Amino acid sequence: MRFHTRKWVKPEDLNPNGTLFGGRLLAWIDEEAALYTVVQLNNSKIVTKYMSEINFNSKAVEGDIVEIGMEVKKFGKSSITLKCEVRNMMTRETIITVEDIIMVNLDENGKPKPHGKTKVEFVKDRLKDK
């Protein structure tokens, strides 16, 4: 799994217990999944269709740095299914794993559109072709 994003847990990210608010973390995961999908499908018109069950395994507190990792599980006709892991860099513990995040590629009218992708591509490889 590649970890693309790091977030620093700040006071505004905390719940009343002084730990990272789950809703904040889910927003970070959704944003990272969207960014990852935009890059993979080379289209900024995408939406989150589904996010599987979540289970918090450990916590993060103010000052911790969390890393968000994504990997492609499969490419559908107009979708991409991702797996996400978030880990605490300070404690080395996994905070949460999301087994399935389904993102859908859209056309200019907001309808699902085939993307034609079958494998993970890296931007550096796309630049070689130009």
Rank of each mutant, 00 (worst) to 15 (best):
L25G: 06
K49F: 05
K111S: 03
E93Q: 15
L82Q: 08
L14G: 03
I68L: 13
P11Y: 01
V66S: 00
L26C: 09
A34K: 12
V86M: 02
I68S: 06
T19S: 15
E62P: 08
G76M: 12
I96G: 03
T19K: 13
M103V: 04
D30R: 05
I96E: 09
S44N: 13
H4F: 01
Y50P: 02
K77V: 04
M70C: 14
L26S: 06
L41M: 03
I96F: 07
F56H: 05
I101E: 09
I46S: 02
S52R: 14
E31P: 08
K10M: 13
M89V: 06
N109C: 07
P114Y: 03
V98E: 07
S79D: 05
I101W: 09
W8V: 14
T94F: 03
F21C: 05
S58W: 10
T19G: 14
K113S: 11
E93T: 10
D30F: 08
L25Q: 06
V86C: 04
V104S: 04
F122P: 01
A33R: 07
L82R: 08
P11A: 04
K7Q: 05
W8N: 14
G110T: 04
V66L: 08
S58P: 01
I46E: 01
T37W: 01
M89N: 05
L127P: 00
L25P: 07
W28S: 09
G69E: 11
A34M: 12
K117L: 02
